[in-house]
Design a protein around this nucleic acid. Structure first.
Lengths: 130, 130
DNA sequence: ATAAACTTTCGAGTTAACTCTAATGCAAGC
DNA sequence: GCTTGCATTAGAGTTAACTCGAAAGTTTAT
């Protein structure tokens, strides 16, 4: 029931490279990965779940530094649950804010595109060899 | 009427640093900035407009490399208007796609926060010294 | 007129997040 | 038994986007 995976399999499953997996471990983003008798890493399904969670945080723009903070809290056990929730809520707000700004800039970009279309028409209508 | 600004004033107006302004110029993101008799840069209002536009593109996640492409087209004049519009439309789509993914990840994060709240309650109710 | 505060260039340094290399060892196929 | 391919580590290299420092000229304030 405690199926274990090679680093290669985990790389495929998480779309991180094996290099990155080892890098994350060195950075203490991922900790206490089991080893087999040859010192090879053996990842559990729980490890995968954690890595997938990290990927999602990364996709929302969280820095590795921040993720390390969170991983540190997680290592300390259930007594840090509230701290971790607050941490995520804080990040949530930041991402929300970022999305608002993104939407605003996207709207301005849409306007710019309209302006370009007008300029294009002017240009085409005033060409010498029209 | 052709008011000219010092690098310092432009830095203040665009919230870029003077270092970054010179860096952008070296990268050909900004070109043909006028110089006074001592070789000091003199920015026009049009230059400011362009830099502000670059800032907006940056805020939507466009890389400097991409922005240089666009600046290059712009330097070639009105014949590249269509190419520039298409370039921006392409970028627009990318940002839209990115926002969809961001929203999706944000929703998952919201779920995670709810889960944390449940775990917190369980933890608090099962403490030894409740 | 002299110090403080600007400007210039060139090139080096920084930070984040990988990404790769080298040296070495284990393992599976023929 | 040997080759091919996987694993390990430590540490060096890469890329993007700045950011800074040094040396030297200029302008402003006292």
């Amino acid at each position: 029931m405690d199926k274990l995976l090679t680093i290669q399999q985990v790389a495929a499953a998480t779309s991180l490279s094996v290099h990155t997996l080892r890098y994350y471990e060195k950075m203490n983003l991922i900790t206490s990965i089991q080893r087999d008798e040859n010192g090879y890493r053996c990842y559990s399904l729980e490890d995968i779940t954690w890595i997938e969670f990290l990927n999602r945080l990364k996709a929302t723009g969280m820095t590795i530094k921040k993720m390390i903070e969170l991983a540190e809290l997680r290592r300390q056990g259930d007594s840090t649950l509230t701290a971790r929730r607050k941490f995520l809520e804080e990040h949530y707000k930041e991402v929300q804010q970022h999305m608002i700004e993104l939407q605003n800039n996207l709207n301005l970009l849409a306007n710019k595109i309209v302006t370009y279309k007008e300029m294009e028409n002017n240009y085409l209508n005033n060409r010498p060899n029209k």
